[in-house]
Structure formats: structure tokens, C-alpha cells
Amino acid sequence: MQPRPDPNAAEVIDIQNLTHRYGKVVAVEDVSFSVKRGEIFGFLGPNGAGKTTTIRTILDLIRPTQGQVLVFGLDSRRGAQEIHRRIGYLPSELRLWDNWTGAQYIRWLETVHQRPILPEAEHISERLQFELGRSLSGMSTGMKRKMGLIAAISHQPELLILDEPSIGLDPLMQQVFNELMREARAAGRTVFLSSHNLAEVEQICDRVAIIREGKLEAVEAVHNLTRVTFRWITLTLPEPAHADGFRDLEGIEAIETAGEQLRLRVSGRTNIDALIKQAAQHTVQDISIEHPTLEEIFLAYYGQKEH
């Protein structure tokens, strides 16, 4: 029986035991999680992990082989049209109608949403430095994604579903995007975004679900996840590197030396100020910071949990 929709339900998305198979291939298996109203929720996983399959199921483009997806308390299939009225979506592989201008596309969306959205679209496009009057043909990937983003958020939907939203955005625009998402949250809207990049997710998300090989590995508050994560800091010195002096710093989890390079695995507990002061005692020719791979995060996360 169709659950009675609750417009004020705390859980905007509620996925229960979702399994989706493409023939014999299991894309998503027994995935359960929920997204609360007013939060920015990250859906993190490497390419091919099942993120897009999950999102396409939420949007009723494909149907669950098993399990159930509720959005705003409505079944994703039976309530699809009502759900789609209240969401904005940006796909990972965006294909816009090349024979239109941005403004034409927005005006067309006005007929779909049956309300004016052009003023808001103009406001957002200004912030994203996008010209709505330009033809969509021949645009770079980044510009097209800006258009996709404008189209997804201009009607101010209650729920934004963004699949790899930062693809093609330069760092400056990434900042504007982050601001837009924070503003959406402040206005009580919910954001569900997928990514394969933890650094991107940890900047704006409140909670994150991690999916790997179709299975949900964890659903955590971002601060819990980043607490167990680390960075690799590599210092290049003019002479063969020594670990002396770094070993005693708090939060240094591992040290590797290779020729003139000193590689430090730095946890969230590390006193960065002390680390920089220690490094300043040497002539540092180069410094690089690497974010951990998702695989390393999983290992760190589960290593922590097991202890």
C-alpha cells in the first residue's frame, strides 16, 4: 500500500534494501540509507560503485529489482510525477539540447514547472558567470554543467539531486557552487550529491554514505569520517631526508624516506603548526599534499572501527 505522504517528513529520501540488477550483473545490492530534510548528503564511491544506479532508481528511470525507494514519503515509481515536481536534478553525463539558447531552455522549463523561474536563473547565472543568451551548442563541458546546474536549482526545489556536480567546474566556480549549496541548506532545502572525491564532499556535506562495488559501506557524519582520514605530505629537501624531529610530532602516523623526499602520513589530529615549524628547520625545496584515495579512507575507517 502506498504510504501516506508526509510533506514534513524528516526523511526526504528513504531507501530500504535496494537491489538493482542489470541482467546478471548486480549494480546495487541491499542498500539502505536515508537523507534527512535540510541536510547536504554526500554519496561517495569510486566510479562504477553504484552511485548513478541508485540515483536513477530514486528518479524512477529504472526500477528496483528488490527493495523500496521513498522520496517525500512517496514511492519513487507510483509518486514519480509528484516527486519530480519537487526536485531538481543534474546528471553526471549532461546532454543539453544544442539547438537552444540557455534562456530558451529556461523558458521551456517555465512551461514545465508552470511558474516563472527566469529571474532566479538570471541571478544564478550571474554568479556562475554564465550567459543565458548564448547558444548551448559548442559549449565546453564546464559551461554545459553550469547550465545544467542553473536548470536544476532555479525553480528552488525542495530536494536537489546532483550526480558528480563538480565535473568541469574550475576551483573558483567550485566555491560558488559550494555557496549555492550552503544557501539551499540554509533555506531548508535538501541536497543529495554524489562524488568520487572526498575532499569535495567534506567541504559542504553534513553526512556521507560510502558505496563500494554496489554495497553500502558506511553512513557517517562527515566530521567522523574526516577524523579518521589523513593526508600525505611530501617534503623535498636538498639533502637526503631524515625523519628525526618529525617522529615525535603528534598525529604523524607514518614516515617514509626516499632520497631527498620525506613523506609524512598526517592524521586529522596532527598539529600542523608544529609540523610546519619542524619543516622550517630544513631548506624545503618543494612541498606537496595528497588526499587519500577512497580505498585508503575505507581502510583507515575500518581500521579505526576495529580498534
Partner: peptide
Amino acid sequence: RDGSMDMLLSLPIS
């Protein structure tokens, strides 16, 4: 195939 159908069907259009 090219994904534009996903955009279309994510709108309130059955």
C-alpha cells in the same frame, strides 16, 4: 543512450 532522456524524465513529465 546519451542521457538527455534522464534530464527530461526527472522533470514533472510522465
